[in-house]
Design a protein around this nucleic acid. Structure first.
Length: 632
DNA sequence: GTGTCGCCTG
DNA sequence: CAGGCGACAC
């Protein structure tokens, strides 16, 4: 850059002379001009010498200062540090006059066409930028070029973190963060600085990942998906765009756009119809979709026992496994074994100590990034964990592995956690669980549906994690059987292995809100269906197993029960409490009655039902107080 | 201002 | 399941 600046300066100086020469030739005053040029050359030479002297003097002062610093810190800096020190001196050591001078210089640059400003925004200035700009500006002020001090020419390399700090210092030195930018007609200097710093930190984090992954892969070359397209994208020219990269989190985007703004970078969900990447994915998909969504809604016998339902025979997970139609059975897989067999190696209720590879629920972007990245990585060590497909679907341990015997993975969790924390701090308190903590659908897809992905999601014994894991989600769903409206304190009581903060609490509350929403939707749906289809002349509909049962009973063999069980207890390892069945029945009747009596025309007709449900929370069993999922 | 809720959307 | 939003209570 220095070279470019010099060339420009040279051409400027040279150009001025040439233009003047042409004019003089036109006016026939060559001899006079020749004399002027001679005098000008002499003056410039003198000024150059003066400038040189000033520079040498400044260098001497700087050297003295540096010596003092070295003494104070007891060691001599490396060559790079010396350069940084020189720049820091420019920042912290210069007097007000010099500072003003620099500011004026930038102002002039700005007025001349915003060169400095544009450069600053088009890429992050490397450490020597400040000194170069300053010197260059001085030279310009004197109408000359500096002509030396190539020692300051620096490729701007260096270790990334140092680079970030140095560049941040450069920005500080430019006075941008002190609001001086406004004085330059730029406006919003603080924001620019923050953006630049953010970009730099993001880039640094990407490089950290790159580096760590390299270490983990024992110097094996990274696959293209990691290095070029994800981790190093910024380094390939994205620095100056100020756009939102892979590191942008929803909270960050929210904060960025402000309330009411638009955001167009929704997280890419897994494309509908995309083929399952792993048998577990098939398991998740096939089990997660409520069967009721696959058939018309207006059939009779909504709550008939599954055995009586023509479509349920082959899909009911509560029945012994049946052969599935070819299209739905692409893999012979443990998913279709009885639950006990299915979880033989991946027990969903393993206590934290049995699950050595934690994968907190990262925010979607992070999780997807990790998933993508790691899915392309070879195993950390031969025969070790991190099979890509199992990771993709949230189950870090292929059934054939015994993760507890592995050691190399033990150091991986801190990476993800550290990155989460780091990005959180980077975003200054954004979304977590994801981000700060928070942080995604993709999170769940990548880390946790219940089926088969609930194992190995805890930290080691005695530890707590900031984020929530798929296993926590599973536990929350089971808790829903007892508490539809758990308080924050209740949540804290029953998630002792979670380090609570505002966002984690909000996340858990949001989960229960989602659970309720699903619950109410099913209640209303089945109530409407019963009201529409199942109301005999003699009064109450017979929706249970048979006509001997009371009307609107929610038997354990009804479709509604199956759907609820599927949603909150997918792996079917926990017995649905009778109390929950009663409550669901009650809710069903309330919805039914409201619909029957036409109260549903009131916009607030559900409120009373919600209020009633709210009062039916039961004490959560003590087994939920323990870390991990309760045995049911 | 903050937390929580339900509703809506994807 | 997450995110956005408005409403509401404190």
């Amino acid at each position: 850059m220095l070279r470019v600046k010099r060339l420009r300066l040279e051409s400027l100086v040279k150009g001025d002379g040439e233009i003047g020469l042409e004019e003089e030739e036109e006016r026939g005053r060559r001899s006079v001009e020749r004399g002027n040029r001679e005098r000008g050359r002499e003056e410039r030479r003198k000024e150059r010498e003066e400038l040189k002297e000033q520079l040498e003097e400044a260098r001497g002062r700087l050297k003295t200062l540096q010596e003092k610093v070295w003494k104070a810190f007891g060691e001599r800096p490396t060559q790079e540090e010396r350069r940084s020190g020189r720049e820091e001196d420019g920042d912290g050591g210069m007097d007000e006059e010099e500072e003003e001078e620099t500011a004026e210089g930038i102002t002039e640059e700005e007025e001349e066409g915003g060169e400095i400003n544009n450069m600053s925004l088009s890429f992050i200035p490397s450490p020597p930028f400040y000194s170069i700009a300053k010197q260059d500006q001085k030279a310009r002020d004197h109408g000359k070029q500096m002509g030396e001090d190539k020692g300051n020419v620096n490729g701007g390399g260096g270790v990334f973190l140092e680079g970030v700090l140095e560049r941040a210092a450069v920005w500080m030195g430019c006075g941008v963060v002190r609001g001086e930018w406004e004085g330059f007609g730029g406006g919003g200097g603080g924001q620019k600085f923050a953006q630049a710093l953010k970009q730099e930190l993001g880039s640094a984090v990407a490089r950290v990942i790159d580096r760590v992954l390299r270490l983990y892969t024992q110097n094996e070359p990274l696959p293209p998906s990691i290095h070029p397209s994800i981790l190093s994208s910024r380094e390939r020219g994205n620095e100056g765009r100020g756009g939102e990269g892979v590191w942008a989190t929803p909270r960050e985007r929210e904060e960025r756009r402000g309330r009411g703004g638009a955001t167009h970078d929704q997280q890419p969900p897994r494309p509908n119809g995309a083929p399952p990447l792993h048998p577990h994915a098939f398991l998740e998909q096939s089990e997660a979709l409520p069967l009721v969504t696959r058939r018309p809604d207006n059939r009779r016998n909504t709550l008939l026992p599954p055995n009586n339902h023509p479509n349920n025979r082959t899909h009911n997970p509560l029945l012994p496994p049946h052969p599935l139609p070819p299209l739905r059975q692409p893999h012979p897989h443990p998913a279709f074994l009885p639950p006990a067999s299915r979880h033989k190696d991946t027990s969903p209720f393993l206590p934290p100590s049995s699950c050595p590879l934690p994968l907190p629920l990262l925010h979607y972007t992070m999780q997807q990034l990790f998933t993508r990245s790691l899915s392309h990585l070879p195993p950390l060590h031969k025969g070790d964990v991190m099979n890509s497909d199992t990771y993709m679907e949230g189950n870090p341990f292929p059934p054939q592995h015994n993760p507890s015997s592995s050691s190399s993975h033990l150091s991986f969790p801190p990476l993800s956690l550290a990155l989460m924390g780091g990005l959180d701090r980077l975003d200054g308190g954004m979304h977590h669980l994801h981000d700060r903590d928070r942080e995604r659908d993709g999170g769940m897809r990548g880390g946790g549906g219940d089926g088969g992905m609930d194992s190995g999601m805890y930290l080691g014994p005695g530890s707590s994690q900031e984020g929530l894991s798929p296993c926590h989600l599973k536990k929350a769903k089971l808790m829903f059987f007892y508490a539809r409206y758990p308080s924050s304190n209740t949540l804290k009581t029953y998630f002792p292995d979670v380090k609570f903060n505002r966002c984690v609490t909000s996340q858990l509350i949001k989960w229960f809100s989602n659970f309720r929403e699903f619950f109410y939707i099913q209640m209303e749906r089945f109530a409407r269906q019963a009201a529409r289809d199942g109301l005999p002349r003699d009064g109450a509909p017979c929706l249970g197993r048979d006509s001997r049962e009371p009307p609107l009973r929610l038997g354990r063999d009804t479709e509604l029960y199956r759907i609820l069980n599927m949603h909150y207890n997918k792996s079917n390892d926990y017995q649905v409490p009778d109390r929950f069945v009663e409550i669901a029945e009650l809710a069903l009747r309330e919805f039914f009655t409201a619909i029957q009596t036409g109260r549903d025309s009131d916009p607030c007709w559900k409120k009373s039902i919600y209020k009633m449900i709210c009062k039916l929370d039961s004490p959560v069993p003590d087994s939920f107080r323990l870390p991990g999922c309760p045995m049911g």
